[in-house]
Simulated assay, not measured.
Amino acid sequence: MQGERRESGPPLPPGPGGSGPLLVSVALVAFLLAGMFTLAALVEWLRPGGILDPLNLLFVGLVVFPLTVLVGLRLDPEGFERLPGGLTLGPTRTSTGVFALLLGAAAVLPVAELDNLLQYLLPQDAEERLRILRLMAFDGWGGQLAKVFAIAVVTPVGEELVFRGIVLRWLRRSYGRLPALLVSSALFAAAHLSLRGLLPYLLLGLAFGWIVDRSRSVLPALGAHAAYNAVPFLFPPEVADVPGWTPRADAAVAHLPPLWVVGSGAACVVLLYLIWWSTLRRD
């Protein structure tokens, strides 16, 4: 077995105490959030319906994510020169991609139940419940397609390129594997601006980052992320009315059937092992 892998290429220019890549990563995430808020406010002013309108949501994602990726590549001394490696878009095995896709789908139920449990500590307020209900509501076939494309395609692609394709690569190149995974996942969780979502998003970020680390490509993690985001829209409330899964207008906390959670959790463990196994010969 070889020692710990590090990305090739020079590290980013160091800042005080060698903190340059970390500060630049935080700045890039701040740029992403600022762009989201600014464009969302502009869309709210120009077009009725707010950010949760399917077309508004799609427009914001299609503008802000590519712009953030371009800024990230510009900040890296070798970002553009090393494409597609500058975005960790290396080739990957088909088996790894399939296992990652299944992992993303399997993770939905355990993460949903974790969110249910966290609601005892940090309950949803009425505004959040209404926002979730509106997001999950059927908006007609055109609106639903725009919503699914925005959330299950544009958002996973944008977030994976930013947090795993750029930030994780920056941090790992300078600090090594474990610190890079932890910090990039923490930034990913914090960027969702949800106190109750910090732990679920941190765990998802660690899983996606680990997949990138094992496969040396952001593509399998992108598939896992897309599958995770897509599943709720494949089984909306009109199709699957399940306690603990279906958004509710009241404040009562419901739970998924325990067998579902245990079964999907076990599937996640098996799929993580299969991803590890499928990438063994890449070490």
Rank of each mutant, 00 (worst) to 15 (best):
V111Q: 12
A112Y: 06
E113L: 03
E113V: 11
L114A: 10
D115I: 15
D115L: 15
L118Q: 00
L118E: 00
Y120L: 09
L121D: 04
L122K: 15
P123Q: 15
Q124K: 04
Q124P: 10
Q124L: 10
D125V: 04
D125P: 08
D125T: 05
D125C: 13
A126V: 13
A126G: 07
E127H: 01
E128Q: 12
E128R: 12
R129I: 15
R129P: 12
R129Y: 07
R129K: 06
R129E: 02
R129F: 09
R129C: 10
L130W: 06
R131A: 12
R131V: 06
L133A: 14
L133E: 13
R134H: 11
L135Y: 08
M136W: 08
A137W: 10
A137H: 08
F138Y: 09
F138D: 05
D139C: 04
D139Q: 13
D139G: 07
G140V: 02
W141A: 02
G142R: 15
G142Y: 10
G143Q: 15
Q144V: 06
Q144G: 08
L145V: 09
L145S: 01
A146R: 05
K147R: 11
K147F: 11
V148Q: 04
F149Q: 03
F149P: 14
I151Y: 07
A152R: 08
A152I: 03
V154I: 14
V154C: 02
V154K: 00
V154D: 00
T155H: 10
P156T: 02
V157N: 01
V157H: 07
V157G: 03
G158P: 03
E159G: 01
E160S: 04
E160N: 01
E160M: 05
E160L: 03
L161A: 05
V162F: 13
V162G: 01
G165K: 02
G165W: 00
V167S: 02
V167G: 02
V167Y: 01
L168H: 06
R169Y: 14
W170T: 01
L171D: 00
R172D: 14
R172F: 05
R172P: 07
R173T: 10
R173N: 12
S174P: 15
Y175K: 05
Y175R: 06
R177D: 04
L178W: 06
A180L: 13
A180D: 11
L181Y: 07
L182G: 02
V183S: 01
V183A: 07
S184L: 05
A186P: 01
A186F: 07
L187K: 01
A189M: 02
A189Y: 11
A190W: 06
A190M: 09
A191H: 15
